[in-house]
C-alpha cells in the first residue's frame, strides 16, 4: 500500500473540494472494498477523503411512498429499517444476503454501489485486466471464468458486478443522487452503470469528483411484494453466482406489475425488462413464468465455463416468481 494523505470532511463541500484538489484522491466510506484493494495494490490513492461521518445518513419516507436513503447509511441500518422492510422487502433481503454482519455494520449505501468486481484477475497485478489497466487485455476470457458474466459482456471484459443491494435497487427503478462542485445531479440506476463496451474501466456514469449523497426509491404498489433470492457456493458469506430480485403484483388473477433484476450475470445489475413485458397483463401461471424466464435469458452468451448460469438464472426467476405468486397478497 502506497503512502497517502487522509482528510476527514466535515461538510459535503469540503469533501468535494478535497477530492477536486488531487487527481489521485478517493472518497472513503466504510472502506470495506477500498481498503481491501489498497492492500492488494489495485487501488493506489494519494489522498483519502473520509465521508463516512458526513450528515448523509438515514432513511426518509418520501411523499410518493418511496424512500430516500442517505449515502452514508450503513448496510445494516438500511436492512433493519422498518420502512425498508415494509415497503421494499427485497432490498432488505438483498442487503442482508451480502457480506457479513461485521461488514454490513460499516459498509455504506454509496460505497456498495461503487464496489469493484471480484474477478480474480482484476485483483492479480501479474495478469492483464482491462478494468485495472485499460488496454492490457482480459485474462478471464481465456482463463478461469465459471462465475463470470453471461449477459452484456464484451470481448474486453466479462466481469460481474458484486453488489446484492444494487440488484434490488435496479428492480425498484432507484435513482442515484450526487453532488459535484457544479451542483447536484441525479442518475437513474438503469443508466448508472454504463455498458461494458470497450471501456470496462468506466464503471459508472458519475461525473468526475462526484459524491453520491442518496439513493431514491420511488414508491410503487409492487415493491412491498418483493423477494430476493441468492445462489452462491456456500450458504452464507459469499458473492452471488446468480441472484434474483423480483416483485409481483397480481390483481384479479392478472399480473398488474412485475419487476425482475438479476445479479451475478453481468457487469451491472441486470434488469430484465423484456421478460417483465411478457408477464405484464398475463395470468401468473407456471407456463407464463417459464416463458418469462426464457425471455430474460434470451440474449445470454455464456462463456465456455459458465453455461450453467443460464439455466440456473432461469430456474431461479421461476422460483422467485412462483414464491411471490403464492403469497397471500397475490392470491
Amino acid at each position: 500500500m502506497r503512502e497517502f494523505a487522509y482528510r476527514r470532511a466535515a461538510r459535503v463541500s469540503d469533501a468535494l473540494t478535497a477530492v477536486a484538489e488531487d487527481a489521485g484522491a478517493r472518497y472513503l466510506g466504510g472502506g470495506t472494498n477500498l481498503v481491501d484493494l489498497m492492500k492488494r495494490g489495485v487501488e493506489e490513492p494519494t489522498r483519502l477523503v473520509d465521508v463516512r461521518r458526513l450528515p448523509l445518513d438515514g432513511v426518509q419516507v418520501a411523499p410518493d411512498g418511496g424512500l430516500v436513503v442517505g449515502a452514508t447509511t450503513t448496510n445494516s441500518d438500511v436492512a433493519a429499517h422498518p420502512e425498508v422492510r415494509r415497503r421494499f422487502p427485497a432490498l432488505a433481503l438483498a442487503v442482508l444476503s451480502g457480506a457479513s454482519g461485521q461488514l454490513r455494520n460499516v459498509a455504506t449505501v454509496g460505497g456498495n454501489l461503487l464496489q469493484r468486481t471480484r474477478c480474480g484477475y482484476f485483483a492479480d497485478l501479474s495478469r492483464p485486466c482491462n478494468k485495472r489497466v485499460p488496454g492490457s487485455g482480459c485474462a478471464a476470457i481465456g482463463g478461469v471464468h465459471p462465475n463470470h458474466a453471461v449477459l452484456g459482456h464484451s470481448e474486453h471484459c466479462v466481469a460481474t458486478h458484486p453488489s446484492d443491494m444494487a440488484v434490488a435497487l435496479a428492480a425498484f427503478d432507484a435513482v442515484v443522487r450526487y453532488q459535484t462542485l457544479d451542483g447536484a445531479g441525479e442518475i437513474p440506476l438503469s443508466r448508472f452503470y454504463p455498458p461494458v463496451g470497450d471501456r470496462p474501466d468506466r464503471e459508472t456514469a458519475l461525473p468526475p469528483g462526484a459524491l453520491i449523497t442518496a439513493v431514491v426509491l420511488p414508491g410503487s404498489a409492487v415493491s412491498p411484494r418483493s423477494r430476493y433470492r441468492k445462489v452462491r457456493e456456500r450458504a452464507s458469506y459469499a458473492f452471488a453466482i446468480v441472484s434474483v430480485a423480483a416483485a409481483l403484483d397480481v390483481r384479479d388473477g392478472v399480473v398488474h406489475d412485475v419487476r425482475i433484476a438479476l445479479g451475478g450475470v453481468a457487469s451491472r445489475p441486470w434488469r430484465a425488462g423484456s421478460a417483465e413485458a411478457v408477464l405484464r397483463g398475463a395470468r401468473p401461471t407456471a407456463d407464463g413464468f417459464r416463458t418469462c424466464a426464457d425471455e430474460a435469458l434470451s440474449d445470454a452468451k455464456p462463456l465456455p465455463d459458465n453455461g450453467y448460469k443460464v439455466p440456473l438464472a432461469r430456474n431461479l426467476i421461476r422460483a422467485v416468481l412462483a414464491e411471490l405468486a403464492a403469497t397471500e397478497e397475490n392470491r
Partner: peptide
C-alpha cells in the same frame, strides 16, 4: 472475521478499518 472488535458497540472488522478513520 478473526479481527472482529466492537467499535462504538457495533461489531466491525478491524482489518478493513483504517486507524485514522
Amino acid at each position: 472475521g478473526a479481527c472482529t472488535v466492537l467499535c462504538d458497540d457495533r461489531r466491525v472488522l478491524s482489518c478493513l478499518t483504517l486507524a485514522v478513520a
